[in-house]
Write a protein that binds this DNA or RNA. Structure first.
Lengths: 151, 151
DNA sequence: TTCATGTAGATGCAATTGCATATATGTGGG
DNA sequence: CCCACATATATGCAATTGCATCTACATGAA
């Protein structure tokens, strides 16, 4: 066993470490800026957007909770409660899923679609400002490709 | 005013959007894997590492809270409570800062240094597994450089 | 039918976060 | 010296998260 492995695993080189730190910091910074834009526009939490977006994309504007879960990486209990909040605001509605008594549909309402559009009017420009404007098109493409390797 | 700008700002192109989604997802996935490794090793939360690391790096193993804040991007109230927890575990100690009655030193203890090392024995290999092993050295360097542009 | 096992989703509870505000101290006029 | 204002850190409280567990329904085998 080599010296480097004596603690049970390879250690990361400086490039790898820099990539990890960069990933954490960049995400934090950009997220903070986008969230600030959201607050300035008195919008609900950013996380709501993803769920609304998935629903709007989906056929008939509805998905099963576990489908949303898979698409958004949200934890099951976390999504369950997020749906509660969205429903309380009238942005989605729960509907029975007849083929399986355990299941349900989460359906986006008209208010939900409108809210997603309203959020996008802030979100879109915010992404452009905090990311698009800092990278060339080629760089953005390259960044996305590198990040994809980490999934 | 052009059609694209009628909503108050440029919209991001698909490359930019892909970079943003990739950033969020990659960070989430990698973080989840690393946290799983931490739990498997019965280690405290990952966030403790950064504070301990900054203190270990610092001269005399101590920093003022606001200095830690700047280095870690933690929110002020968040750090204040994190220090409480670290102190309760005996990993750091608060000490008076004589030159300014409002201030204090946060000093890393021997137990704190030992804990940081113990954490690194999991953290290092985890970073290597989940990031290093998925990228060439050149890719990691490139990724870090691109992410640096977002700060 | 019955039971063992698996899956969809909800929920109690403790810990953490975010926000706003509080406390204490420092500083530069006037 | 006194005051207005700035800075360092803490904290009450409501909202959110994580974890573990629970309920309800489904499914396949005996």
């Amino acid at each position: 066993m080599s010296e480097r492995e004596k603690d049970g695993g390879e250690l990361p080189g400086p490039e790898t470490t820099a990539a990890w730190i960069g990933l954490m910091r960049a995400r934090e910074r950009v997220l903070a800026r986008i969230e600030a834009d959201f607050k300035a526009a008195t919008l609900p939490p950013l996380g709501w957007y993803d769920v609304l977006w998935e629903l709007v994309q989906a056929e008939e504007g509805r998905l099963r909770p576990f489908e949303i879960e898979a698409r958004t990486l949200l934890a099951q209990y976390s999504l369950s409660r997020l749906i509660d909040r969205l429903a309380k605001e009238g942005l989605v509605r729960r509907e029975a899923f007849d083929a399986d008594g355990r299941g349900q549909w989460v359906v986006v309402t008209e208010a939900g679609r409108a809210m997603r559009e309203r959020m996008w009017r802030t979100y879109g420009p915010s992404i452009e400002t905090h990311i698009g404007a800092r990278l060339t098109e080629a760089e953005a493409r390259q960044l996305a490709a590198l990040l994809a390797k980490l999934r």
